[in-house]
Design a protein around this nucleic acid. Structure first.
Lengths: 341, 341
DNA sequence: GACTAGATGAGGTACGTACCTCATGTCAAT
DNA sequence: ATTGACATGAGGTACGTACCTCATCTAGTC
């Protein structure tokens, strides 16, 4: 049988009320008594029964997810994963609210963040670019005592409690490794398509990509980044131009969260199969392109894992308990045709 | 606020006792009343508070893991993951017991399984080969009402409740895809090293590997399997022989759970860097070899995820509740130098 | 109409913890 | 010696569910 608070009280020679004060860091206990209680806790190996505690505490977790209203399929898969998590969240006393803001509109984002406070939410998960105003809004929330995790794209200068996502530099390095290895010993030239050089994750991936290409595959030429601002028309145009101008092209690296237009253009030009194509994020589009052989590899992150991890971490922060680091590490997944779940 | 049993009772116009009888399938309720209660449950969207229920029920989860006593590092990493999970398991009323049996000794395994019954364990996770006696022992446990999950290597003919691990055919296919892609357009010949053709997972991987090599990379010759029975001396000898006999060798596929001896021999022969090497399972050995560039890719499964998933599934089976399939799908991970977390 | 089996209700205790109130104890400063 | 601040104890209620006992009601049987 596991020891209970009563056992601790008996062992420490104090009353239940005192054990309770110690356990919940309530004032009014001498340092000496605190230590006696803690000694008993250690000795008996007491672990607080979190389920009973939460029951007694009537704890609900009102969590808010702040997500961009973006056209990329990746954001949609993230929303799907969140919806799925929401379906089973009632069982663990968690209420999920989703707030959206138009992508690329920091003012709208800040307005959204301003509506949040410790009275209406117990924790916030946010997927957004870091701007000074966003930083301020997050600092305010933090100082209001609301735990915050950054999703997918880190907010390193905001004192967020945790970042849930992959190391994007390593993600870019991984993409480069695959690109280089799939080229074999022969040289070539690689087109790089980013959504925006404002987005931290895009920049980091590009950085990592360049590092490995330079270190390990110097025989391959890496072309300058093409920005598409997540606009499919722009993508179609710039990719077409490069395809025409560079008949010697051997590879394409799609850095951003969306790859639909890219795949379409490459198919229209009948170049997909001859090129080595590495993209990010597993979506219906990249999934299908992997299956058909048009994309060779996808570097991805599991959106279901991201959402569940964010929920676990926020709840842990609210409860003031620790997390299992291994469980919360989002892996840089490499997906090819054959391990497509 | 979530509805409680009291709300259901009021809505259905019955007493709490009747709701309780319906919820817990106790006898003594007319079919008509059952339906009235169920209607109220549906209408109010009642979900049983599992934590409160388990508290009242005094539920403990006594779970048993049955693992081989094997020399491969992979089994050690699995044990480490289990130990780590054990450290935080007290918080969720879970007691983990680990039983070991000498690998390759089905009799000892059966003896071990015979000690288990519903009186001393609430659920069993087992990593073992499927033999007729094992199958019988598992069927007996099942009919005793003990939920069972198979770990890593499936036991498809035993009515185990769940398999926690990867699809090993797809794992082999993935290894082949990488092997072929890393070869580029040039042909070559690939050595295949298995631990034993008795082990179901090894056989399946080899099968998947051959499928993809034949379909997609016919220019590469795949040599017959070399069995090492997880013996490092045998490995050293047979690998050396092939290296000497086949100077044209271009790749090595290590199917089993251990790769230490292989890496050592290849290094001793100074052949590691020129060969394309694909292995299974991320361990300290393969991790280091990826980093040094001696191994090119590892096809792996997250042992931490496997253990946590097994625990979640067993608890869910014991509670008679559903699982989140996406959370329990063990991914076929591709690990290269750059995404080595 | 008496009897009986079964359905249902009323009310309790328990699980382990949180959190509250009030009484009492202790000790040091005045 | 009195006061007050603070430490501690005693005992309660609550959370949502499980599970128990006993009383009462209902419908059908003879």
């Amino acid at each position: 049988m596991r020891p209970t608070v009563n056992d601790i009280a008996r062992a420490a020679g104090v009353s239940l009320a005192t054990v309770d004060r110690v356990l919940n860091a309530r004032p009014g206990v001498t340092e000496k008594t605190v230590q006696r209680v803690n000694a008993a806790i250690d000795q008996l190996g007491y672990v607080r029964d979190v389920t009973a505690a939460n029951l007694a505490r009537q704890r609900r977790y009102r969590l808010t997810f702040v997500l961009p209203e973006a056209p990329e399929l990746f954001v949609a898969t993230l929303r799907d994963a969140l919806a799925e998590a929401g379906r089973s969240s009632a069982a663990d006393r968690t209420e999920i609210r989703t707030l959206s803001f138009p992508a690329g509109n920091p003012h709208a984002l800040v307005r959204t963040l301003r509506t949040l406070n410790s009275a209406n939410t117990d924790g916030v998960a946010i997927f957004a670019p870091e701007t000074p105003h966003v930083r301020d809004a997050i600092l305010r929330l933090k100082s209001d005592g609301v735990p915050i995790v950054a999703l997918v794209s880190d907010l390193p200068n905001t004192e967020r409690d945790h970042f849930v996502g992959i190391d994007n530099i390593a993600g870019g390095r991984t993409a480069a490794f695959l690109m280089g290895k799939f080229h074999g010993k022969r040289g070539g030239s690689v087109m790089v398509l980013v959504s925006s050089m404002q987005a931290r994750d895009n920049v980091e991936r590009r950085l990592g990509f360049d590092q490995v290409m330079a270190e390990s595959f110097p025989e391959i030429e890496v072309l300058p980044s093409l920005e598409n601002h997540d606009d499919e028309d722009i993508t179609a145009r710039v990719v077409s131009e490069v395809l025409d101008a560079r008949p010697d092209l051997t590879g394409v690296y799609s850095v951003g969260h969306g790859s639909r237009a890219l795949v379409e253009v490459l198919r229209a030009h009948h170049r997909a199969r001859q090129l080595t194509i590495v993209a990010h994020e597993l979506t219906s589009v990249t999934r299908e392109a992997l299956r058909s052989g048009d994309i060779d590899a996808v570097v991805s992150q599991d959106v279901g894992h991201i959402v569940r991890s964010a929920l676990r971490i926020l709840r842990a922060k609210i409860d003031g308990v620790g997390i299992v680091p291994g469980q919360e590490r989002i892996r840089i997944e490499i997906v090819v045709r054959e391990n497509l779940s």
